[in-house]
Design a protein around this nucleic acid. Structure first.
Lengths: 111, 111
DNA sequence: ATTTGGTATCTAAACAGATTATATACTAAT
DNA sequence: ATTAGTATATAATCTGTTTAGATACCAAAT
């Protein structure tokens, strides 16, 4: 059986980019937000977030800086770059198409 | 960048099950049908279909038999089992939830 | 006659994003 | 002193998809 992460696969970056469009954030908070909105169906693991950050930094989609963890551990903040914004817009267009087609395929509607 | 197959990942089985609910079929035809409905956005590779068949047979979702390829190569037909139908219904319910949540996450709508 | 193109199935090896497991470290409350 | 919550990180593993290649049959064109 496909593991639950396959549902998220390919969308993690888009989701992170979308969250960062609301303002800078850090891994733990982003993970909690996805978990919260995931309603038990989508549950992202923190390792997924952190490996995605590395990839996205390498691709120039994110910029990063250290913040001071108030009342806890240190935080590494991320902000979305211009390139990241462009990537998000592109992914959103793609998703809109994919979503419609996937619905056709899964529900068996006519072409 | 996520390769295009990640968009399909986790849904291939559901799509195959859905197609087989219209009647028995074989790999090449199923691949063409997905390609056709995929509108250039979803393009499944035949190896993906055939490896999915093996998995699904092992899981008891499909039954198979050889047909005679009229005017071409031999065909291996697949039919959906009771278990396959149940799996499809279950996957459909799952997808309905995932689709809504994924849209919330990707479009950044309120919870 | 043989080459080309369409039909059709199959598998080993590589790829890549997600998961598992584990380590580290700081703070606040018990 | 211990536990729980906050926070980041990475190596190794998992698994569905892709790449690349093999096999084979038929019909039409050269």
């Amino acid at each position: 059986m496909a593991h639950s992460g396959d549902l998220l696969r390919g969308h993690t970056e888009t989701i992170i980019l979308r969250i960062l469009m609301d303002g800078d954030s850090y891994g733990y908070e982003i993970a909690k937000r996805i978990l919260d909105m995931g309603e038990g169906v989508i549950d992202v693991k923190d390792a997924t977030i952190y490996t995605a950050f590395r990839r996205m930094e390498d691709e120039g989609l994110l910029a990063t800086y250290w913040g001071d963890g108030v009342g806890g551990a240190r935080r590494r903040y991320y902000s979305i770059t211009e390139r990241g914004r462009a990537q998000y817009e592109s992914n959103l267009v793609e998703w809109t198409k994919v979503d419609r087609i996937l619905n056709n395929l899964i529900r068996g509607e006519q072409k």
